[in-house]
């Protein structure tokens, strides 16, 4: 198969960010690599359906996201956990070690509902516009904005962050004072 150079480059350049998205979404590297591999193979198989001039990365993310949901639906039938209660109990509690630890962040992300997690990742670190994220998720722009908003708030709650200073050297002290104040 010979691809036009722009498509070829677009596919190649999308792989690392697709992998980062998949790892952040699933919390599992093997599952993430399965998803990226399947999405790439599927993308190449149906490359003739891609509309030139549109965003190849958004197109690939749509495929990846749809595959994740197919997988997620299958898995949910196996382990029913609609409220994330099991996931919450399995998650590692955040450590108060002076900054937001990557593992804390991953654990908190894993506790977000899937639709909030994907919206936050697409609009936040991945840098898609709300319009692009809405197209990828098959949702309205307002729905995506709402999901991102709720995800950010919930993430701050899960990490016990009350002010920007909490993500810094004095987080331990502030968290201790905060907990003592509100648990009395």
């Amino acid at each position: 198969m010979t691809l036009p150079p722009d498509l070829h480059d677009g596919l190649l350049q999308s792989i690392p960010s697709m992998r980062a998205f998949a790892i952040s979404l699933t919390g599992n590297i093997d599952q993430a690599d399965d998803l990226v591999q399947e999405a790439m193979v599927r993308g190449l198989t149906y490359i003739n359906q891609f509309q030139p001039g549109t965003n190849i990365q958004a197109w690939l993310f749509t495929i990846l996201r749809n595959q994740f949901h197919t997988f997620y639906r299958k898995r949910r039938r196996e382990v029913e956990d609609p409220d994330g209660g099991i996931a919450a109990r399995l998650a590692v509690p955040p450590e108060q070690d002076g900054r937001v630890d990557v593992e804390d962040l991953k654990a908190a992300l894993a506790q977000l509902p899937v639709v909030q997690r994907e919206a936050l990742l697409l609009v936040g670190p991945q840098g898609f516009s709300y319009e692009e994220a809405a197209a990828i998720c098959g949702a309205r722009i307002g729905t995506i904005k709402s999901r991102v908003n709720r995800a950010r708030t919930r993430l701050a709650e899960l990490l016990g962050i009350e002010s920007p200073d909490d993500i810094g050297a004095d987080r331990v002290v502030k968290a201790t004072i905060f907990n003592e104040t509100y648990t009395r």
Binding site: I15, R19, A20
Partner: peptide, 30 residues
């Protein structure tokens, strides 16, 4: 401000993941 700061942390985490070397099976695809 909290959300902005969290956004920075998320981008940093995401950036590290994107910079990780690809596994063999994805390198084969490349």
């Amino acid at each position: 401000a909290v959300r902005d700061k969290l956004g920075e942390e998320l981008r940093a985490m995401y950036g590290r993941l994107a910079d990780e070397p690809l596994p063999d099976r994805l390198l084969k695809l490349v």
